[in-house]
Design a protein around this nucleic acid. Structure first.
Lengths: 219, 219
DNA sequence: CTCCAATGTGAACGCCGTAAACTTTGCAGG
DNA sequence: CCTGCAAAGTTTACGGCGTTCACATTGGAG
């Protein structure tokens, strides 16, 4: 886990990135609370105060770890999504893509709880009117595409499209939180998968407001 | 904020409860991370080490704060639920009660984020096969009753009842988390309410698998 | 070649959790 | 009544954390 590239000179040369990577590693194993200036510095083999040449404070370092975490999560979800077959009935396909996105989200949370939690930490003390393109929005954008496709194929009613992200995102995010940090932690793997299936089924059914969805229900 | 009952003698007499209440206060204003042995002791006007006569460690104190937090949350939700009218169409009523429960959950999270977060913290390092009646299950039980009622009135199909808690709970919990700690933090109140409405609507629609639900859809 | 700005180190402060040794106190039994 | 013990607080101390300030080293611009 320790960074292999030993420091050769007084000046590190890439300390900022090295610290950020170390911070991400700490986050992966211990969650955001484990992201510590002293810990990251120790990992890199440098004095704690050196970190202050590159990060304003611990929150700033955590932010860098968060960037890496979000990148990792986006990559994992993209990989998961890419395995969905791309041929077949358009409605089935759009639904399958939404399901895959949700499943990928939850699976990442369960497999990498530290990173997942790091993705969604630190919004508390963010400067007021700061970057509206907040991190953590990557899944949001991806979800938006899925919903657009659902509208295109007639599964989701167009009038229900605006603001439709909230529901599915909440369902998937909530289940992830309950599974890794909450009261559902510790349930068996089978129970876990059942909970995921039930939640996704409810979500998909809850979005079925379009004409194509009605037609399918009547069959 | 400081506890008014000043200590009159060397022995406090009710230090454990006083510390627990102080811890809950800290949790309310600063979340679970603010629950600190030294902080609670300071609040009560006692030496930090005195706390160790009543709590094994900081996690133990946090657990006590969590108990109070969960009690408070349950009370708030019960109060919210009690305002639902008790007469009218049975299906409407059952749905209204589910909606009120969900709305109460989210509203409490938004109004008391520190307490809410404290309710769902500390599951990470809980002893392995400990109390299966985990805290945080109170909402779970309440939700179970709502779902039972939905089955009774024919809105939710009986075969979909087992394990049906996961979906609604996840949706409501997830939205709460996104609103208070996540990327949805900082949206306007109107946007917030829209997100809640959309999420609850999706949830209720997603549970509509019973005969009575179909009949209503056809009208 | 020189000097300065960037980048690192060392020592120190106050906060935290926690342990060990000590002190105060209420109360049980003679 | 009084004696002594166990319960409940206090004092002191350790290490880890974030953070600051003064200082050391270095690479590269002029």
């Amino acid at each position: 886990m320790t960074n292999s590239s030993a420091r050769r000179s007084y000046h590190h040369g890439d300390l900022r990135n090295a610290l950020a990577r170390a911070a991400a590693g700490l986050a992966a194993s211990g969650g955001p609370d484990a992201v510590t200036i002293r810990g990251a510095a120790r990992e890199v083999g440098v004095t704690p105060t050196a970190a202050y040449r590159h990060f304003a404070n611990q929150a700033d370092l955590l932010l860098a770890a968060q960037d890496l975490a979000i990148t990792g999560m986006a990559a994992a979800m993209a990989g998961h999504l890419s395995q969905v077959p791309s041929e077949g009935d358009p409605v089935d396909l759009a639904v399958a893509r939404l399901l895959s996105t949700g499943r990928g989200y939850i699976q990442f949370a369960v497999e990498e709880p530290g990173i997942f939690r790091t993705c969604f930490t630190g919004y508390l003390d963010r400067p007021e009117g700061s970057d509206p393109d907040l991190p953590g929005r990557a899944p949001y954008a991806l979800l938006g595409e899925m919903l657009d496709q659902l509208v295109e194929v007639g599964y989701l009613a167009p009038e229900d499209r605006p603001g439709a992200e909230a529901g599915p995102w909440a369902a998937v995010h909530g289940l992830a939180m309950l599974l890794i940090d909450g009261p559902l932690r510790g349930i068996t793997r089978a129970e876990q998968e059942a909970a995921v299936d039930r939640t996704l089924a409810m979500t998909v059914r809850g979005l079925a407001t379009g004409p194509e969805a009605e037609r399918r229900r009547d069959r």
